[in-house]
Each structure stands twice: as structure tokens, then as C-alpha cells.
């Protein structure tokens, strides 16, 4: 990161829009993660019979959804990392020049 020295007066405008954009994306993705996880935990806490539905021999609904929560956690991370690597970092480089 080859940023030049900035005076305090320059701080406010520089990057404010980019910072807001990242915060919105971070909050939306966090909300998605929480919805997925607490949706699952809500079923676990309040509707065990539904989660226990046997779909096929050796397969119940919770054995499908549990690993799906794990996989979707990683996929959400991947979405953020790809966005940040491409869009956000490019924006930072642009502003830092």
C-alpha cells in the first residue's frame, strides 16, 4: 500500500463513499449469515419434529441442513472476499493514488 501522507482535512471526503459501501455489504452479509444460522437454530429449538423428518434411508432434514449451514458460511465468505479483492481493493488503489 503506497499511500501518500494526507492532512487531516482531506480525510472526510476520501473514501467515505467506499467505506459506506463496504459497511452496507458487510451488514447485509452478516444479516444473511445470522438469518441462516438462527433460522436453523430456531428450528432446532422450537420444531425438532420437523428437523427430524426422515427424507430417505440414512438422511434426515437436519443432516441436510446442518452441513448446508457450514457450506453456506464458507460461500458467504467467498462472496465477500471476491467482492473485496476485485471491487473494494481496486477502489482503494484508485483513491490512494
Amino acid at each position: 500500500m503506497n499511500a501518500k501522507i494526507h492532512s487531516a482535512a482531506e480525510f472526510a471526503p476520501r473514501g467515505a463513499a467506499l467505506a459506506r459501501k463496504r459497511l452496507v455489504i458487510a451488514l447485509v452479509l452478516s444479516a444473511a449469515m445470522m438469518a441462516i444460522y438462527f433460522g436453523f437454530m430456531g428450528l432446532f429449538a422450537f420444531d425438532k419434529p420437523l428437523l427430524g423428518t426422515i427424507l430417505a434411508p440414512g438422511l434426515s432434514l437436519c443432516i441436510v441442513l446442518g452441513p448446508l449451514v457450514i457450506i453456506s458460511s464458507f460461500l458467504l465468505c467467498l462472496v465477500y472476499a471476491l467482492w473485496a479483492n476485485r471491487v473494494f481493493d481496486a477502489g482503494i488503489r484508485e483513491l490512494g493514488r
Binding site: A26, S60, C62, I70
Partner: peptide, 24 residues
Amino acid sequence: GFDGMIYSIGWLVGWPIILFLIVE
């Protein structure tokens, strides 16, 4: 049986939160 996975999932779902809100 299945219930052990509750801990596995719980220990993982915090990581995206670190990534989105905290680490950078």
C-alpha cells in the same frame, strides 16, 4: 448422534462475522 453437530456449526458461523465486520 446428530446433536454433536450443533457445536460444530456454532464454532464455524462466527468466522464470516469476523471477516465481514472485524478483521480488516
